[in-house]
């Protein structure tokens, strides 16, 4: 069958794929469309174009931002995500290098504990962890960074260890013989080699932390000014009596925009990182 019209591939397959693109994008268009409608019209005419009296301009956006303090939530989400990812990359790569290179009973026990922590679901420790975090006064954005380092350490250490094992020992030995201390060896020789794994680890952790709801909700809560975006969205829907679907639509659009922008810029790294993470994890 040679029906390759103008090199688009098999026309039937191409057609199916185009149809699926429409299906996949429908929910996004749906919330975008409804975010410009008055709140009463969202439940009555959910699928019509926001025209005439239905169109309310940016009213939903201003309402949604005001009710949830969206920009502050965005700021805290960004702070917690960026700080946690940087801290995780720095400390877990150091730990992974040390426990791979120094073979003692303690380091191999640590390795197995990190691997073990990967199969433990968050619900197992959520109650005790949030109580402990309260007692240690970690119920603030800086404390969150420490908690993310601890709970994210398993996967990150495991992935770095896998890569460190493949680095030939001779490179590090040469650096040590030339007079580098372990710290210099790590930062000047090992760290640059670890860069591809560091990008993968950064992406996996960033996706998880940015979207995480339960940990910030339990540790920081909703009655503080430190709400993150998922907590703010749930706060809007979870606690108010009359549900304001107008604000919700606008807030959902606002919550998606940063993710899509980030995705379009770092698409290649994100897809590669996710594949590498899945294959190793």
């Amino acid at each position: 069958m040679k029906t390759k019209g103008k090199g688009f591939g098999h026309p039937a397959v191409f057609g199916i794929l185009c149809g699926l693109v429409v299906v996949f994008l429908t929910p996004i268009f749906f919330i975008l469309l409804n975010s410009f409608k008055g709140k009463l019209y969202i439940s009555d005419n959910p699928f019509s174009w926001p025209s005439g009296e239905m169109f309310v301009g940016l009213e939903n956006y201003t309402e949604g931002i005001r009710k949830t303090g969206f920009f502050s939530a965005f700021g805290w989400s960004a702070f917690i995500t960026v700080a946690s990812v940087l801290v995780i990359i720095l400390f877990t790569s150091m730990t992974a290098w040390y426990i791979t290179r120094v073979k003692t009973k303690l380091t191999s026990a640590l390795y197995y504990m990190f691997v073990f922590s990967m199969v433990v679901p968050f619900q197992m420790i959520m109650f005790t962890m949030s109580k402990l975090a309260d007692m240690l006064h970690l119920n603030n954005p800086v404390g969150m960074v420490l908690l993310y380092l601890g709970f994210g350490a398993g996967l990150s250490v495991f992935m770095f260890c896998g890569f460190v094992k493949s680095i030939p020992l001779e490179i590090e030995e040469a650096a040590m013989i030339d007079g580098c201390s372990p710290l210099q060896t790590f930062f000047q020789v090992v760290m640059p080699i670890l860069k591809p794994t560091a990008i993968t680890v950064a992406i996996l952790n960033a996706m998880w932390i940015w979207n995480d709801y339960l940990l910030p909700y339990l540790v920081i809560g909703v009655s503080t000014p430190y709400k993150t975006i998922p907590v703010a969205v749930q706060y809007l829907m979870g606690s108010y009596g009359a549900k304001d679907y107008g604000s919700l639509m606008a807030l959902l659009v606002l919550a998606i925009i940063p993710i899509i922008v980030f995705y379009l810029f770092c698409q290649k790294y994100i897809i590669e990182g996710v594949v590498a993470g899945a294959v190793k994890g």
Binding site: F114, I125, L147, L149
Partner: peptide
């Protein structure tokens, strides 16, 4: 190289270990 590195445990492992203890090991036990 292991021997000269052992002294560096506190720098390389301790920060991660403390966070890991607080966020995972102690709550788990």
């Amino acid at each position: 190289m292991g021997k000269s590195m052992k002294r560096y445990f506190a720098i390389f492992v301790l920060p991660t270990l403390i966070a890991f203890l607080i966020a995972f090991v102690i709550p788990f036990v």
